[in-house]
């Protein structure tokens, strides 16, 4: 069976499984959010200082918050079936537009962070495995343990202190120089400068995980018979590591990376707050504080889709990496 058929089969299976999963997530989230006290009208009234009963009722009626719960759910699902995420009472604009503004920033941050985490983790982990039990391994183990145990917000703050305040090399927040109107390479460099610190603080925790995982996986694979076969062929240690060990060791690492996509979205809330990065994480935080459940439901729906897509990608990667997978 060719790689393509295998991948196709895996893809179809995932797509079919995704529909009920998403539906379940939406319904469950809808009811969970109702458990929180208050609604958007309460918050808006609170912020305005005062409001009459009539204004409150008018607000609720305008946003459909006065309907019975099941009707609200039905309305939401009805909108969803028409590919609409609803309207945000707080921001006064369609949720889809709101998310659309913020999504690219978060996706970019996550993608860069995940790339850094995997790349750095693989390199460090490979080094640790190659030097296992010797000094480089010990040192890197300590470093990865530090990364693992230090909370992301603290790393974020310390990076700001070091690189922005003391050294003045990198900006301390935001996602681009306002009003600079840079284009081309200069514009890209400007974006990169704003990206480095947040991506790094988000990535370091995962660097530690991937480094330790890579180390364990590679040591496990190194003791396999086929590695000895490769050595008996006369291949050099570097070729053996890259061609025979790493590829087999990648399988558990991709599994973890897929699982981390969801977790990173959570970590992004903290990092986005520290670096005032205009992303989805901060939007979610603001939506919770404003009891703007339509926005929150939209974000939750989107992140669940993101996790499903990430899992599907991991499945596809597995089917590609390991020919034994996807044959069933």
């Amino acid at each position: 069976m060719s790689t393509l058929t295998r991948i196709g089969r895996t893809f179809r299976r995932t797509a079919i499984q995704a529909v009920p999963t998403v539906l379940g997530i939406v319904v469950l989230n809808f009811f969970l959010l109702q458990l929180a006290p208050g609604d958007a009208a309460d918050v808006m009234a609170g912020e305005a200082g005062s409001a009459t009963v009539e204004t409150m009722a008018a607000l609720r009626q305008r946003f459909g918050l006065d309907n019975p719960l099941l009707v609200q759910l039905f309305n939401y699902l009805y909108n969803l079936a028409h590919f609409s995420l609803g309207f945000s009472p707080r921001y006064g604009m369609p949720v889809a537009d709101l998310i659309g503004q913020r999504l690219p920033g978060t996706l970019l941050l996550m993608a860069v962070a995940l790339t850094i985490a995997i790349a750095l983790g693989l390199v460090l982990g490979s080094l640790m495995a190659v030097f296992s039990g010797r000094l480089p391994d010990r040192l890197l183990s300590v470093v990865s343990l530090l990364f693992y145990s230090i909370p992301g917000f603290w790393i974020g703050l310390m990076l700001i202190v070091l690189f922005s305040v003391k050294l003045g090399w990198l900006p301390s927040g935001g996602s681009g120089t306002i009003g600079s109107n840079l284009t081309g390479l200069a514009g890209l460099w400007d974006k990169v400068r704003y990206m480095i610190l947040p991506a790094l603080s988000l990535a370091l925790f995962y660097v530690a995980i991937y480094a330790r995982l890579t180390r364990a996986a590679m040591l496990e694979v190194q003791s396999q018979d086929y590695v000895r076969t490769a050595a008996a062929k006369g291949l050099s240690p570097t070729v053996i590591t890259i061609r025979h060990v790493l590829r087999n060791a990648l399988i558990p690492i991709t599994t973890m990376a897929g699982m981390h996509v969801g977790g990173m979205l959570g970590g992004a809330v903290v990092v986005e707050t520290v670096y005032s990065w205009p992303g989805l994480g901060r939007l979610a935080f603001e939506a919770v504080m404003g009891r703007d459940f339509t926005v929150l439901l939209g974000i939750l729906l989107l992140s669940s889709l993101l996790v499903i897509v990430a899992n599907a990608t991991v499945d596809l990667l597995h089917a590609w990496l390991d020919p034994r997978i996807g044959v069933r």
């Binding site: 086929y226 008996a232 006369g234 025979h244 590829r247 390991d322």
Partner: peptide, 24 residues
């Protein structure tokens, strides 16, 4: 020595089930 392995001295092992790399 690497140059000798596989070219002048070759070896086959006991476990054919695990002696080949499963992903190649």
């Amino acid at each position: 020595m690497r140059n000798l392995r596989g070219r002048e001295i070759a070896m086959i092992f006991q476990e054919p089930m695990t002696s080949l790399n499963p992903v190649l």
